[in-house]
Amino acid sequence: MKRVIACVAAATVTATVAVAVAATPVQAAPADPVAALRSRFAEGKGVRFTDVATLVAFSGNTSFLKRTGSLQFGKAGIVASDVTAKRTGDDAEVSTVLSWTLPRPERTIRIGTTSYYSGGAWAPPKGKTWVKHPRGMNGGLNGWYGQLVNVAEPSTLKLLVTRGKRTGRTYSGTVTLGAVEKVSPWLRSADLSVLTGTGGLSKSEKAAVVRFRLTLGPDLLPRKLVTVYPPATHVSAAVGEDRQLSVETDYTGWGSRVTVKAPPASKVANMGKREPTLRGGGRG
Rank of each mutant, 00 (worst) to 15 (best):
V94R: 10
P103M: 03
T108C: 13
G89T: 01
I111L: 09
D82C: 02
S81C: 14
D90I: 08
V83K: 01
S99L: 04
T96R: 08
R104L: 12
A80C: 08
R87A: 13
P103Q: 15
V97H: 01
T84D: 03
G89R: 04
T88S: 14
R87L: 07
A92V: 13
P105W: 11
T101P: 10
D82V: 02
V83W: 08
V94W: 11
R107K: 15
T84Y: 00
I111D: 00
V83E: 00
A85H: 04
S81W: 01
T96M: 06
V97Q: 05
D82W: 10
E93F: 01
A92G: 01
T88I: 02
S81N: 13
L102K: 10
A85I: 00
R110D: 01
V97A: 14
E106M: 07
T88K: 14
T101C: 08
K86G: 04
D91T: 06
D82F: 03
E93N: 05
K86W: 08
T101M: 06
A92M: 09
A92T: 13
R110C: 09
A85M: 01
T101R: 08
K86C: 09
P105Y: 11
T101Q: 09
T101V: 09
G112S: 12
D90A: 15
G112M: 10
L98R: 08
R110T: 15
E93P: 00
D82K: 11
S81R: 13
S81Y: 04
G112Q: 10
